[in-house]
Amino acid sequence: MNSMSESTISKHFEEHFFVSGHTACSGCGQALAARLVVDAIGKNNIVANATGCLEVFSTKCPQSSWRIPWIHSLFENAAAVASGIEAALRYLGKIDTVRVCAFAGDGGTADIGFQALSGMLERGHDVLFCCFDNEAYMNTGIQRSGLTPFQASTTTSPAGKVWKGNWRLKKSLVEIVAAHFIPYSASASVGFPQDLQRKVKKAISLRGPKYIQIHVPCPLGWGFDSSLTIDIGKKAVLSGLYPLVEYEGGKLTKVFKLSQKIPVIDYIKPQSRFRHLLKDEEALRQLQKVADKNIEYYKLGEV
């Protein structure tokens, strides 16, 4: 590996507001997505970050990867802390110059953080909430969350002689959030960085609550080679298992069309969390059905 020269390092620090030197695993989709989001939102932002991988690997005292003001309080309250920051900025008359973001993982968003998120949305706070969705509680060791996909094996939904991994469908959180009739609710993937940054820039330009759920493959938790993060992310989208959609004011306004649809087997094959499906035709067929339904429901195949 080439060592970075001093000028390369200082350039990196000038260009980015979420900088390297943190302790994320190699190939971490979340670390990459965080940098893409923070680069897109820019300097005049305050971030409230829930407990989780991102918080742990980016702020080991006395070091921090954040070059914008950042606070971590607890697991379930990122949306409420962000609400308080937004209220304070309103009080200070700074709400037009400083924007507020809340960052959380899928557990901190869809499960333990869901009540605070719904409250923040309903109250209309001017906050962009980004859910970094790696589809399980990775920081505590790959336990099932409400956003764990159908049939994925986790440490608390293991595939065994009786169980076939997680037996529930992934919670439709983008839609549930959109049902608050907020300005913007979207899904994105680190596998499509330009699309992700476009969505972040669009969201941050709108006033009121915004939500972006970003698919961030996790090499450790999903069991794939750390060089494949982007590839796996792309395949999730192209298989129809992770539809990229945009809701504005509660209405579906845009979907990411699948120009080259792939079978789910191409997506799951490199991941050990789905390994049990390779020997189980019926289970695999059921998973393909989930993808097909998504493609039909969101009209992903129609050009």
Binding site: I46, A48, I71, S73, L74, E76, N77, A79, A80, V81, A82, S83, G84, I85, E86, A87, A88, L89, R90, Y91, L92, Q115, A116, S118, G119, E122, R123
Partner: peptide, 23 residues
């Protein structure tokens, strides 16, 4: 700013966020 929240947990979190902004 008077923020009506959905729980005491969030009430405490909202004032935490405000205090962290120096308010």
């Amino acid at each position: 700013q008077f923020i009506n929240v959905e729980s005491e947990h969030s009430a405490a979190s909202v004032v935490l966020g405000a205090e962290a902004c120096g308010v």
